[in-house]
Amino acid sequence: MLNNLKKIPAREWAKIIILLGMGVYLAYTILSENLGNYINNTRFVWLTWLAGGMFFAFGLVTLWSNLRPQAPALPIEVASLMPKGWSVMAICAIPLALGFLIPSRPLGVESLTGTLSTNVSVSDTMVITRDPLKRNILDWLRAFSREADKTRFDGVEAEFSGFIYRNPEFEAGQFMVGRFIVSCCTADADPVGLPVYSLEADELADGQWVVVRGKFYADEFRGAITPILRVETLEAIEQPKNSYLYP
């Protein structure tokens, strides 16, 4: 049977390599904790394992059926637009090529096509019970959007992390600390941020990850009264492995 290995046509090899390669790529992405760069891995890691397993199964079955050519192979002839053959293989190899050749990186400040939003959707029944010092940007934005009187947060102490975002219209010392909210995958990534005030940060580059700690004071920001964090301590940090927030 192994003699048949040499008889497998090149295009069948291409199929086998793409299918098994996808399985390897997905397993590698999960195990290297890079999956969080692409999808909401707290909710969907099982789907990715399932896909990896199915790619392996498909790949092995394709290999097996080529080793035993007498078994009835059942190619489904779907009416197709494109010439069957190498162009199909080339298209199907694109995810593998991009996945293995381009270093895995989450969306960051350089991925923004607009600005950071300060609006988040919040349901009426949602209760934010988390300890204020442990709240992330999303928790704070939700808390703010449910409170009509923004001065209610004056003097409240907070600590959160994110990337630095600046805009030409910001004053000196003013910037935003941003995160991407991802509910399913990067297709729905929604960049949000909290306004922050600290002269210390002027030497830090856009996109640098920081942990800021300070107290909120309501002030005008983009034409509305918004709690702005007056930073007391600021620390530059490495970008964390799972950099998105999941609603």
């Binding site: 760069n37 995810p95 990186r105």
Partner: peptide
């Protein structure tokens, strides 16, 4: 990088 991350995000979520 941005393009790749967005593409693979859609692909990995969709392919299962």
């Amino acid at each position: 990088n941005t393009f790749t991350t967005r593409f693979l995000g859609i692909f990995i979520e969709a392919v299962p």
